[in-house]
Amino acid sequence: MKILSREVIADVGGVRIVKIAVYSPDIAAKARPGQFVVLMVREEGERVPLTVVETDTDKGTLALIAQEAGLTTRLLAGLQPGDSLYSLVGPLGHPTEIKKYGRVIFVGGGVGIAEVLPVARAIKGAGNHVTAIIGARAKELLILEQELKAVSDEFVVMTDDGSYGRKGFVTEALKELLEKTKYDLVYAVGPIPMMRAVSVVTKPFEVPTLVSLNAIMVDGTGMCGCCRVSVGKEVKFSCVDGPEFDAGQVDWDELVKRNSIYAEKEKHICRHHSEQLGR
């Protein structure tokens, strides 16, 4: 659980996105694209889920990419090589089904780009035609551009403010592509509004659309039900039944609301610990 390397891959107005390599040979050997880990930075810390972005079985490491959101991700971003996590468990969740689909579009928004990358790589490896559309608020927040480009047959970059690539939302590019050609799968990860918009865009085209949900979790092993989401008529636990679900079936309103359960408390804890965070 030792941090072997750490790199700030984006930093905008003090919000950093860091890439961390953690030593954990057992998890590195088992993790498949689409799976995640749950970690604690400290003993008094929170358990937070993060996607396994890359694994290196020779070195026994896994790469995690985290965007500073609240206290835990900020503490994580502040760790240095040589530091150790308090706990790390995984791999969790179902891996993505890697097979020949045909033509696949990946849509990544913000730090969701990190979650898309391992799946895109594997899908490309399975002989599919890969299109990637990535987007961020601004150029400085765009991550993993080269890595994704390397596995894409088609590649589109969108920024909200037009500071790089095309100006606009990823969904605009998605719609144009779907209007031109037939695709067999759309796979999207990003902020909830983005995933929801993707599901709205793909619906009329009847293209299967998968999203990886970021419900709030505690254990990540199916024990608490904190991560429950309504999918179709059923209640699912994201951690063990997901994290991927059919976008068209997800009750997005409910997910948005459930992810705000602790909004007040999270603001409070960051103020409370502001000294430790050094800002």
């Binding site: 008094e44 810390g45 929170e46 358990r47 505690v218 608490c224 408390k265 999270e266 804890i269």
Partner: peptide
């Protein structure tokens, strides 16, 4: 969930412990 947050994660000591 409720008991785990408190008994395992010490949510009753929030914000000294980080789980709400």
């Amino acid at each position: 969930e409720f008991l785990t947050r408190v008994n395992l994660m010490a949510a009753h000591e929030f914000p000294a412990s980080h789980t709400p």
